[in-house]
Design a protein around this nucleic acid. Sequence first.
DNA 1: CTTTTTGTTACGGTTAACCGTAACTAGTGG
DNA 2: CCACTAGTTACGGTTAACCGTAACAAAAAG
Lengths: 221, 221
Amino acid sequence: MIDKVIIAEDQEFANLSVQKTMDDLKVKQYDYAFYCDDALAKIQLAQKKGEPYDLLITDLSFEDDGTAQKINDGIELIRAVRSIQPGILILILSGQYRPVDIHNLFENHEVDAYVRKARHDVQELKAAMDALSKGQRYYPRSLAQLIKRSNTYEFTEFDITIIRLLSEGYQQNKIPDYLKEHNIKPSSLSSIEKRLNQIREELGFANNQQLMVFCSNAGLL
Amino acid sequence: MIDKVIIAEDQEFANLSVQKTMDDLKVKQYDYAFYCDDALAKIQLAQKKGEPYDLLITDLSFEDDGTAQKINDGIELIRAVRSIQPGILILILSGQYRPVDIHNLFENHEVDAYVRKARHDVQELKAAMDALSKGQRYYPRSLAQLIKRSNTYEFTEFDITIIRLLSEGYQQNKIPDYLKEHNIKPSSLSSIEKRLNQIREELGFANNQQLMVFCSNAGLL
DNA sequence: CTTTTTGTTACGGTTAACCGTAACTAGTGG
DNA sequence: CCACTAGTTACGGTTAACCGTAACAAAAAG
């Protein structure tokens, strides 16, 4: 059973509605936080007291307002939480498609459920909670399809570096210098050209501009 | 006074919380819709009955689920509503920065208030409602700054066409053919080159890839 | 230690993109 | 009707990007 829940969500609208849903579901105890740091602190404290949370419901993107925070991102929060309480259930509640991030979460089995802030999100959340309480995971299949479709291709760290540099206005023939300075393994112009060529071919893109837009939309940059 | 409100918001979480806020603010009557078409129909009906809404609270992006809809976008909804009830107040409630869209809304004075789904959105919404009931507009200044910063440059329709074609993988020297086919006025390769050059210069970009990412982030494509 | 495989780099030819200049066109105003 | 201006187009030279091939290096397999 899921008796104790912590909600990390910076949007007040969403936070409130999730709380209300917890009421509807008769969850015995839940707390909420608007900042990752606060959520992490509460989880840590509960853990020390021997009354750990069963489930973390968290957004992926947190907005930076004035107050300085150590953690300002859902992914980082998840990693931090997993390091202090590996067994906690994690439910992602996110508004944006961030195919790359989500793909990683899927791959590493770091999360147990995913609910999008979308048309029937309340029902989705209830269904997810139901699945979790039965020991199941919960991924809407629409999401799984999206991931597959938009991220068949596996970008390496090297790829992302190149693409990032291009998106910052670097010229291809100046990238080798940058790579050498930063001790990145393949650093020749040939390697860069070959890699870009391969990526374009596999994704069926005609030019780099198309690739850039794709990566931008996928949240790679 | 704002006595009668219609809420158009597809996210159930947000819709619920807005309703709750209307309760808190003692708004006499409010209705809600999860689809643009539904919202528009309600506005039309109320208008005919001689009991028009004072305020429309709407999201900008609506998700396409199975059900076919005539209107599937906040901007379109606003235009449609304005055409049948020009005097209605409009409050945007949006999660994403869409600099281009928002910039247009600002420019054309089509909206009366803007609230972002973010950290203190409930207070923001209450403050916006307060301003509106006093006959004022409500734009958070953080947003105004963002607009200015990210959209100094004014893209023409021609610019956007070119950029769109490039983002779809068109080669520059094939774009003239496309333009001629579609009877778009400047159609020579020279014009395209010159325009791109000018845009890059004004925005301080070194290559097209950088421009593409910028346009993608600005929501131009 | 050799062979094979895999990956990286170097080089040259080709194509596309870039950039300046000049010719041409259309619209404006005298 | 003739300048004048702004915008468009045509052209040629330069640079960057693309692409194939072969040499080379490093790791894996024999």
